[in-house]
Design a protein around this nucleic acid. Sequence first.
DNA 1: AATGTCATCAACCGCCAGATG
DNA 2: CCATCTGGCGGTTGATGACAT
Length: 278
Amino acid sequence: MGRSPCCAKEGLNRGAWTALEDKILSDYIKANGEGGWRDLPKRAGLKRCGKSCRLRWLNYLRPDIKRGNISHDEEELIVRLHNLLGNRWSLIAGRLPGRTDNEIKNYWNTTLAKRLAKPSAEGPALSPCRRAPTYRTTKRKALSPKSSTRSHSPPLTATRPRVTRAKPYTLSINHPPLLPNDNHAEFPAWPPSIPNARGTSLLPSSRNNRSEEARDGDLGFLDLACGNFDDESPNGLISIDDKMLDDWATAYDGSAALEEGKDMLDLESLAFLLEEWP
DNA sequence: AATGTCATCAACCGCCAGATG
DNA sequence: CCATCTGGCGGTTGATGACAT
């Protein structure tokens, strides 16, 4: 038995919201909080489906929303995050306080994608982007918070958005195998890069002047990677599965950035941290 | 001024995973 | 274990306004 479409019920309003509907929804949520979207319209006295109410609140009515005027910094961040994460707009939005996934998605599709595809005469204003393939994937139980905290989260400080992944990542390393070293201080030189399955670099391009903590974090990851590399992967491929990530996150729990996350680390966040770490 | 084209973005759709009974 | 419910996500659509002809 299939579910009936949420918004197909007769007698419900569709299309643009009126100011009165906005006020009713805002007042109701301010008084009663978010959640229970299916029953919310009935309780609030709105002729809308719950899904529509949720969307209206999250994308438009929430008080902490910034709208329009995406700054150059935000733009750069969107591009970089898109390089790392692909079309995972909610994850990207989670790194941009006050921005919604819908707004970023629209901005990307209408502005950034075109600009990146067609650099201006004076050169590209933004770093080139390899558009990642779209994928709908299996969500990791261990990494999925009970409810989404997207957009409410300031970057790197709140519960991570739920993470989806289709299959273990395969990393291809184009240099001599790294051997884990018991003494991290003597860990081999950084590889030029470790591209992941989507072609994005998992290691920062500028590795000089990095803090000891940051290096330790990277080293922890490399230990993990190398541990699975040296014996089994003569072809230069490393398979990073959920357990490895979990082990890594468990073993390396010391950095300020990770502590702020308060939960397990996923590869996307790891990649982001490695990129963003001072 | 009328018409056509393009850009923007709010809203909708369909699917999925986790929760629940 | 299974069926269903619920919330969340990314892709797409369509209304609207701006701009060009």
